[in-house]
């Protein structure tokens, strides 16, 4: 025993190194992107507080762009109002139908931390459990898709950005209704990749891609991006399509969090099939 202790003492530098590396690797392994420990719930309050104070300060420098974006979005929404449509009194009929249910509700949140240069990027928002945010809610901004909520503390949530290894979103080419999957292979934060579109379909550069609404997370028709490069890897029967994200993921300030009110029903139904 004494010899063992003496041995450890003699190589204490190496053993301390080993212990610290093991602790780090355990921390990495325990934190899969789905589950985060109770401890991080507490630390998120601390880091979130610091990020909030910092972004309160820096957000002033981007007020002008943000105002423009909001004004543009307002203009677009004005166009959709019934007041903006040509109406013929005898033909229009407004029905206040309470059965016409709502599926999605939206909450505004501010980005208080964001990164785009890592392989796995996350975004922190200033909304959490207290505001009704839960995991698996979609996040987008007026220009396009942003990510999915993966963990929530009382006042904050972490969003898995589209620029992340684990991101997989169902999307389709608008013109053809062809469905595929969006992933990010690292590299430029302005571009993503669309997979699983069969190689016999005629796709053109410039085709727009938007969400399919099949994922139970994202509503339909949220803009994703435009096709830039189309090719087929040798031996594959599906296209690999490089596209440009419509949202500038490096300049996010305010985003919308989507709550799918029917999500539980949809998930239960799909589970009832896969269980068999």
């Amino acid at each position: 025993m004494r010899y063992i202790l003496a041995f450890i003492w003699r190589y204490r530098f190496f053993f301390l190194f080993l212990v610290l590396e093991v602790v780090s690797v355990v921390l990495i392994a325990n934190k899969s992107y789905y589950q985060r420990s109770v401890i991080t719930n507490a630390t998120d309050g601390f880091t979130g507080g610091i990020f909030t104070a910092w972004s309160d300060f820096t957000s002033y420098f981007r007020l002008k762009q943000e105002n423009e974006r909001l004004a543009n979005e307002n203009a677009r929404l004005w166009q959709r109002l019934t007041e903006s449509q040509v109406t013929n009194d005898t033909l229009t009929l407004n029905v206040d139908d309470t059965l016409r249910g709502q599926q999605y509700t939206y909450a505004v949140a501010r980005v208080i931390s964001n990164s785009t240069t890592l392989r796995n990027n996350y975004i922190m928002l200033n909304k959490g459990k207290r505001h009704g945010i839960t995991r698996d809610m979609a996040v987008f901004n007026p220009s396009g898709i942003v990510g999915t909520v993966v963990s929530v503390s009382d006042n904050f949530c972490w969003v898995m950005s589209m620029l992340n290894k684990h991101t997989k979103v169902s999307a389709r080419i608008d013109r053809l209704n062809q469905m595929g999957t969006i992933v990010w292979n690292g590299g430029s934060p302005a571009r993503g990749t669309l997979l699983d579109i069969p190689a016999h379909v005629k796709i053109k550069v410039g085709d727009t891609i938007s969400t399919s609404g099949f994922s139970h997370i994202f509503p339909e028709k949220i803009m994703v991006g435009t096709v830039e490069k189309i090719y087929v890897e040798s031996g594959e029967h599906f296209y690999t399509i490089d596209f440009r994200y419509s949202a500038d993921l490096n300049a996010l300030q305010y985003v919308y969090i989507v709550k799918n009110l029917l999500r539980k029903e949809q998930v239960d139904l799909s589970n009832s099939i896969t269980d068999e």
Binding site: R12, F13, L16, F17, L20, E21, V23, S24, V25, V26, L27, I28, N30, K31, T40, T43, F46, T47, I50, F51, S113, S115, L118, N120, Y122, M124, W158
Partner: peptide
Amino acid sequence: GWLLLISSFLIGLGVDLFSNSTGLHAAASV
């Protein structure tokens, strides 16, 4: 040696805390 290792571990962990990457920077720093 112990101070070198532990302070490096702590600065890595500090950076991890803010980038949602628990343990990653700590491992590299150690």
